[in-house]
Design a protein around this nucleic acid. Structure first.
Length: 318
DNA sequence: AACTGTGCCAACCGCAGTGCC
DNA sequence: AGGCACTGCGGTTGGCACAGT
């Protein structure tokens, strides 16, 4: 037996909203505030489902919504967060003031996905498409085919290949994340551990977890130029991590920086356990195998570790 | 001008999570 | 503990606008 309908479907209007209906919702919200959406149709005199009212307000009528198109910084932000936490649009939207989950989702589906494919990156796994082809059936993509697939000039594929070579030539780093960390070159701005902690914090917050006090301390100790406090978020969405934060330096990023590699390593009581990176990010992040010192989701490959996490992480917590 | 294809975005739908009784 | 109501999320769809033929 299925779930009962949330409202009387036969007596509910569907389709585009009229200006009058919008005005009624705005009037209702200004008087009664947010919440109790099931009461809204009755009290506002609308023949709409409560869910529909909520959606209309949150996605269209909210006063803090941005109308302009997505900036390159926002694009980079979405790609990065998608690579980190998967298609958790509402979480991603929380890091983008003025954007709704629907906005982000639509933008991803209509623009970013295609853009990544054009760059030779699989939008689901964030791996190079050529690499996936190798995995699926051992097809060795030729230079020409790689060129054709990227739709451009294979620039990204070549870059990935080159990075891969560096990566593979340093198997010691690959096999032991701690060795990898020790072998890491100095990254500009602040150290790798801090970067990883910052990534973990983002993942934790996105996973609904309350950040450990020491994590927020870590962030508070980040260099001033990175953690510029420009928070002016006006979003009504709750745990708002405002801002401009990841913005600034995202300009310098290339989307290949967000590539996820084949193998990530778990530390298991000192033993190394190889796990596939293919399960969805949701599974990884939500996994009970989440363990210290570094959770699987944060055992990023060399590419990502080299990634200069030069975001403006200015996170506000409730 | 008419038709077709494509892109985009608002809205819908079904399900999961949560809190209350 | 279990049922119910409500809220929120993510996937999908409908339809409009525009470009191309």
């Amino acid at each position: 037996m299925g779930r009962p309908p949330c409202c009387d479907k036969t007596n509910v209007k569907k389709g585009p909203w009229t200006a009058e209906e919008d005005a009624r919702i705005l009037s209702y919200v200004s008087t009664h505030g947010l919440g109790k959406w099931t009461d809204v149709p009755k009290k506002a005199g609308l023949k709409r489902c409560g869910k529909s009212c909520r959606l209309r307000y949150m996605n269209y009528l909210r006063p803090d919504l941005k109308r302009e198109s997505f900036s390159p910084q926002e694009e980079n932000m979405i790609v990065f967060l998608h690579a980190t936490i998967g298609s958790r649009w509402s979480t991603i939207a929380q890091y983008m003031p003025g954007r709704t989950d629907n906005d982000v989702k639509n933008y991803w589906n209509t623009k970013l996905k295609k853009k990544l494919v054009q760059e030779g990156i699989d939008p689901i796994t964030h791996k190079p498409i050529s690499e996936i082809m190798l995995t699926l059936g051992g097809v060795q993509p030729s230079r020409t085919s790689a060129t054709n697939e990227t739709g451009k000039n294979g620039r990204i594929s070549c870059l990935n290949r080159d990075l891969k070579n560096v990566f593979m030539s340093r198997s010691d780093s690959v096999l032991d994340p701690m060795v990898a960390i020790q072998n890491m070159p100095e990254t500009s701005g602040y150290d790798l551990l801090t970067q990883l902690q910052a990534i973990r914090l983002v993942a934790d917050v996105s996973n609904g977890a309350t950040p450990m006090p020491e994590m927020t301390t870590v962030l508070s100790e980040l260099p001033q130029q990175i953690c510029t406090s420009t928070s002016t978020c006006t979003s009504t969405a709750a745990p708002v991590a405002d801002s401009t934060r990841i913005g600034n330096a995202a300009d310098d990023l290339n989307w290949s920086d967000f590539l996820v590699d084949d193998i990530i390593m778990c530390i298991d009581d000192g033993r190394h356990k190889e796990v596939s990176s293919t399960p969805s990010t949701r599974e990884v992040i939500g996994s009970s195998t989440y363990m210290d010192p570094m959770p699987p989701s944060l055992l990023l490959d060399r590419h990502e570790l080299d990634f200069n996490f030069d975001f403006d992480l200015d996170l506000d917590f409730p």
